[in-house]
Simulated scan of single mutants.
Amino acid sequence: MNAANDARPATTPAADRPILQLTDIWQRFGGLVANAEVTFDVPRGQILGLIGPNGAGKSTLFGIIAGARAPVQGQVVFEGRDVTRLDAPARCALGIARTYQVPRSFDSMSVLDNVMVGSFSRHTRAAAAREAALEVLDFTGLIGRAGASAGDLTPPEKRRLEVARALATEPRLLLLDEVMTGLTPSEARKGVELIRRIRDRGITVIMVEHVMEIVMPLVDRAIVLNLGRVLSQGAPQEVVRDPAVVAAYLGDRHRAA
């Protein structure tokens, strides 16, 4: 990394600083404003839910945090360092990993080899990368499928493989993009348990989800986006009672409930 990406001056001990700070983030695509004035901090060790209706700007913001695209305005600070102009591989090296809403597995490769793709970002020797990948597969419940082709996995297993490959990069911040979509209730319970165990490992989690029944009991804090802006943020039980959130996202049926 070069000296152009200077860290924001630290005013608090590293352990007490938010792991991620977004300040006045704007993103435009031509005349379309995808994100506007987005500012929030993410305390380390929490599970943060990023929710909102379709077109709210969640995926765009996810991409900005991961380094897929730089904002047209604003600042992204990770672990006290300004990473706004760093690309995704550089941010991965610093400890930011993500999954994708549509799984991006290498279907002709084995499950183990898929996860080793992630572990090679931390281990240069194949034996060490393989050992690390096997540990992640055991942690995520996929060890029994290590030798299977990724293309033969069920959709829920492919979502879990996305998580495993991201975990193999040994992140400090994990971005989960709709990993619960399409799961049965029993599969969703296993997914919730996995996310809690990830947090228990000291990894901060930001997750985009639409299934409110899953998100709200799981997250420590929720941020609601609407039309690219932060509509509400706070404890989940407070956010779901916010009249603006009910009107813009949850709807009259939730208000009645």
Rank of each mutant, 00 (worst) to 15 (best):
N2I: 10
A3E: 14
R8C: 08
P9I: 12
P9G: 09
T11A: 13
A14K: 14
A15Y: 03
P18S: 09
L20A: 07
T23C: 06
W26L: 07
Q27I: 02
R28K: 14
G30C: 10
A34T: 00
E37D: 15
E37L: 03
T39V: 03
F40G: 04
F40P: 01
D41V: 03
P43L: 09
R44T: 06
I47E: 03
G49A: 15
L50G: 07
N54R: 13
G55V: 11
A56D: 10
I64V: 14
A66D: 07
A68C: 10
V72P: 00
E79H: 06
E79F: 01
E79T: 04
T84Y: 10
P89F: 08
P89Q: 12
C92Y: 02
C92M: 12
A93I: 03
L94I: 10
G95N: 12
T99K: 11
V102L: 13
S105L: 14
D107L: 13
S108G: 03
S110L: 07
V111I: 11
L112P: 00
N114W: 07
N114K: 12
M116K: 04
V117L: 15
R122G: 00
R122Y: 05
A126F: 08
A129V: 02
A129D: 02
A133R: 01
V136D: 01
L137S: 04
F139W: 07
F139M: 08
I143K: 13
G147H: 13
A148L: 11
A148P: 00
S149L: 14
A150Y: 01
L153I: 05
R159H: 07
L161K: 03
T169H: 06
L174V: 05
L176A: 08
T184Q: 12
K190M: 14
G191S: 13
L194M: 14
R196E: 15
R196T: 09
R196Y: 04
G202Y: 12
G202R: 13
G202I: 10
I206H: 05
V208D: 00
H210W: 08
M212G: 06
I214V: 15
V215P: 00
M216I: 13
V219S: 06
D220P: 06
L227Y: 15
L227H: 14
G228D: 03
L231D: 02
Q233Y: 04
R241V: 02
D242L: 09
V245I: 12
V245D: 07
V246S: 09
R255G: 04
